[in-house]
Every structure is written in structure tokens, then in C-alpha cells.
């Protein structure tokens, strides 16, 4: 499925947070959303997920304006993982992942055999099968993050919108998660802080500054010393390592 923003704007009464963003994510593509704190990554993702009604412009899934779609219809097309979604409830890992089936169920009956199989597969995919019965409160930050991603996969959607999914994860799980995200057939928009990882696993990067897109393209054209200095206010060297992967070495805050 193709996800598209057309001159998309969103904000609170006296402050624009997303400004006239034009963005096209082709089916199966993985796009990394980068930008400093407060650049509007989370808000843009929320608009793309249909959680915020745009104040201007529109969001389209495969050429359909989603503004009038029901929450249920949207949830069958895209899944969304918040940066920190916590609960006081005593749900287990398996029960949280099963929440992903909400939009596919009926109020009259409980989970079907298909639902159970999909949940089991999602748990497997994120290495959580052994933790399925563990209560939420006993999970580490990384386990919670993986549980949310498994829940999003259980939603079986065309699109996947992830807000800094690698937060709290150790290096191994960061790499595993991004590998999963990069190889999935789903259309993915993922906000990331780590520029090198973003460059390595995303097909394309979109750089945001104060709610507007300042660069959009392959990693080597977005992660330039000039743009890094202008947007992130850091001095950095960008080069390639022996294997040809893009490497970002920071010299320090820009002076």
C-alpha cells in the first residue's frame, strides 16, 4: 500500500507543528524519519496513522483520503507503535499482542483459531514466545517495545508506522528489529534517532526541521555535513566504512 501526505499540516491553536509536508512512501518501501527533538516526527506519524485530523492538506492510503475512514478501517490498513505506551493493567505479553486483532474481531465472539495463530506467529517473530505469559509490569523497556511491535505485526496491515522503536533496546535487538522492518513487505515509516542505523536499514531518509521536510532522498544525499550542521547543529564527518556502509562520526556540537 502506498502512503501519501499532501501539503499536510497539523498544529495546536497558536503553533504549527507539522508544516505542509509532502511525502510519498511507495508500497514495500522503508522510509526513515529523522530530525532533532521537537522537529515533528511523532506528530507527522500520528497524522499519517489518522490519529490527528490534519489542519491542512490530507493523508492518502492508495489514493483514498483517510479523513473520513473509521478507526476500524484505518486499523486494518496501518498499525502504529507509539514511543512510550504504558499501562497499569496486568495484561500479559500474549494478551497485549492479541490486542492487535481488535479491528478484526466481532463484539459477539472471542478470539478465533486464526487470531491465535497470528498472535503466536507475531510472538515468534519478535522472540517473545517464551515470555507470552509474563505480566506487563515485569517486562524491561526493551521487552515492552518488542511486545508493541509484535502487537502491530499481529494487526496484519499493509503499512507500519513506528515512533522510535529502537528506544530501550540493546544493540542486538536494535539490529534485529531494524532488519525485520527493512525486510518486511509492509510499507514502513519509522522515526529514528540513530542516523547510522537509519542510513543502513532504510531505503530512503526524510529529514524534518521545525515540522517541515528539508531533505528527502537516499541516505548519502540527506546525511551531508552541511545538513547535519544546519539541522542537528553538530559538526560531523560522513564517510563510508570498508564494507561501503555510510558512517557518521560526530566531532561535537556545532560552534
Amino acid at each position: 500500500m502506498r502512503i501519501e501526505a499532501r501539503r499536510l499540516s497539523w498544529g495546536v491553536p497558536d503553533r504549527a507543528i507539522v508544516r505542509e509536508v509532502d511525502l510519498v512512501v511507495e508500497p514495500g518501501e522503508t522510509v526513515g524519519l529523522i530530525g532533532p527533538n521537537g522537529s515533528g516526527k511523532s506528530s507527522l506519524l500520528r497524522c499519517l496513522a489518522g490519529l490527528r485530523a490534519p489542519t491542512g492538506g490530507e493523508v492518502r492510503y492508495d489514493d483514498a483520503d483517510v479523513a473520513r475512514w473509521s478507526a476500524r478501517a484505518r486499523a486494518r490498513h496501518v498499525a502504529f507503535v507509539e514511543q512510550t505506551a504504558d499501562t497499569d493493567s496486568d495484561l500479559t505479553v500474549g494478551e497485549v499482542v492479541a490486542l492487535g486483532r481488535t479491528a478484526h474481531g466481532s463484539p459477539w465472539r472471542g478470539p478465533t483459531a486464526t487470531d491465535r495463530a497470528i498472535v503466536a506467529a507475531a510472538l515468534d517473530r519478535l522472540d517473545l514466545a517464551l515470555l507470552a505469559d509474563r505480566p506487563w509490569k515485569q517486562l524491561s523497556g526493551g521487552e515492552r517495545q518488542r511486545t508493541h511491535l509484535a502487537r502491530a505485526l499481529a494487526q496484519r496491515t499493509w503499512g507500519l508506522l513506528l515512533d522510535e522503536p529502537t528506544n530501550h533496546l540493546d544493540v542486538r535487538h536494535q539490529l534485529e528489529l531494524l532488519e525485520l522492518v527493512a525486510t518486511t513487505q509492509q510499507t514502513v515509516v519509522v522515526a529514528l534517532h540513530d542516523l547510522a542505523l537509519a542510513a543502513r536499514y532504510c531505503d530512503r531518509l526524510v529529514l524534518l526541521q521545525r515540522g517541515a521536510v528539508v531533505a528527502d532522498g537516499p541516505a548519502d544525499r540527506v546525511l551531508t555535513p552541511v545538513l547535519l550542521r544546519e539541522v542537528f547543529e553538530v559538526d560531523a564527518d560522513v564517510g563510508r566504512d570498508d564494507a561501503g556502509r555510510l558512517a557518521v562520526a560526530y566531532r561535537g556540537p556545532a560552534r
Binding site: R46, L51, A71, A75, A85, T87, L99, G100, T102
Partner: peptide
């Protein structure tokens, strides 16, 4: 059940 993680996650799960 879906409201456990707050309004945004609930909405993204398909709950009005």
C-alpha cells in the same frame, strides 16, 4: 481491553 494503553494506541487498534 484496548484502552489499557491510552487513547492513541486504542484508536490505532481500530477503537472509536
Amino acid at each position: 481491553d484496548g484502552l489499557a494503553f491510552g487513547a492513541d494506541t486504542a484508536t490505532s487498534l481500530g477503537i472509536d
